[in-house]
């Protein structure tokens, strides 16, 4: 870990200068001695709260690396890391208005959002699917006709659902929920028939549910696998370069795969369940050839 930090610092050495020459987020970090990370509360296993009210997850670990790299590059002895919970709905305005510096969660990287924010290298790919109670026997998108479904407000999934609803004339009642846990709760309580979300997050929610055996995933996806990226402010090239360098080095090193195995192929808190999502060809390519492309076809 230290070696990596030093390596990054060495790489950055030519550009290293006093605080006056810094710009954007790096300047802010140097001047204030703090960095604020936006995190999620129920994006298992990316960014969520464990039983001790601690924020943990795959994205949090990756952000940790970026924070270390920033600290090393800026030659700071001490860097305060502040955490702020964000939702799908608040994360983009909060990045833009400087409330958070990095968003460490499960945010889909797409071209539309890139007009507002920037992303570092993709750290996961997931398709939109739905989860429902087994007893309801809902497997395909067609099965949702006339049903009440829920999705998380501000997610790409929400937009896909309302678009599909209009385009295919499904006549679904679409409820917005504040976050993934609240949305899943509506399915648990039978307030909604299905929860439409990224399949990996649904798997994580089912794994941490009271009775995982009650639920099933859909057979059909609403979208192609789309990239997840850690968000940062737009037009902040030096900070993005640092984040890109750090994540690329991490993904290509054995540590990258180890980190993946830690969260996706081993038991994770709070219930010690193993999500068991092996590194498929697409994900392996993502680690070997890091990219921040928003195009699903690039993977």
């Amino acid at each position: 870990m230290k070696l990596l930090g030093i390596a990054v610092a060495l790489l950055a050495l030519p550009g290293l200068a006093s605080a006056q020459d810094l710009t954007g987020t790096l300047k802010k970090i140097k001047e204030t001695g703090t960095i604020t990370l936006g995190h999620r509360e129920s994006s298992v296993p990316f960014s969520y709260i464990d039983n001790n009210a601690k924020v943990i997850g795959y994205s949090m670990d990756i952000c940790g690396k970026i924070v270390e790299a920033a600290k090393a590059e800026l030659k700071m002895d001490k860097l305060d890391v502040r955490l702020l919970p964000v939702t799908s709905s608040t994360r983009i305005p909060l990045i833009a208005n400087g409330t958070i510096d990095l968003e460490c969660g499960s945010t889909t990287n797409n071209a539309e959002r890139q007009k507002q924010v920037a992303y570092t290298n993709t750290h996961f790919l997931t398709a939109s699917a739905f989860v429902s109670k087994k007893a309801k026997n809902l497997k395909k998108i067609e099965d949702l006709k006339g049903k009440t479904v829920v999705s998380t407000a501000g997610s790409t999934n929400m937009k896909q659902v309302v678009e599909a609803n209009a385009a295919k004339g499904l006549g679904m009642t679409v409820l917005p929920a504040k976050d993934h846990a609240a949305a899943f709760l509506l399915v648990e309580l039978d307030r909604a028939d299905a929860f439409i979300m990224d399949d990996i997050l649904l798997a994580g929610l089912v794994a941490s549910a009271k009775d995982p055996g009650l639920y099933q995933m859909s057979d059909e996806a609403f979208s192609l696998p789309e990239p997840y990226g850690i968000m940062l402010r737009k037009d902040d090239a030096p900070f993005k370069a640092l984040a890109d360098r750090t994540t690329a080095a991490l993904f290509k090193s054995p540590e990258g795969e180890a980190l993946y195995r830690k969260w996706f192929m081993s038991p994770i808190p709070p219930n010690g369940i193993n999500l068991n999502v092996p590194l498929n060809a697409m994900l392996r390519k993502m680690l070997e050839k890091p990219t921040d492309s928003a195009d699903p076809a690039a993977y």
């Binding site: 799908s88 709905s89 983009i92 305005p93 539309e112 959002r113 007009k115 507002q116 829920v150 407000a153 501000g154 929400m158 937009k159 409820l175 917005p176 929920a177 504040k178 509506l186």
Partner: peptide, 19 residues
Amino acid sequence: TIGLMELTARTRAMQEYSF
């Protein structure tokens, strides 16, 4: 907060769809 799509909720939906 309980899913009613009234004016403030739609305003947020607009923000979320269009940024």
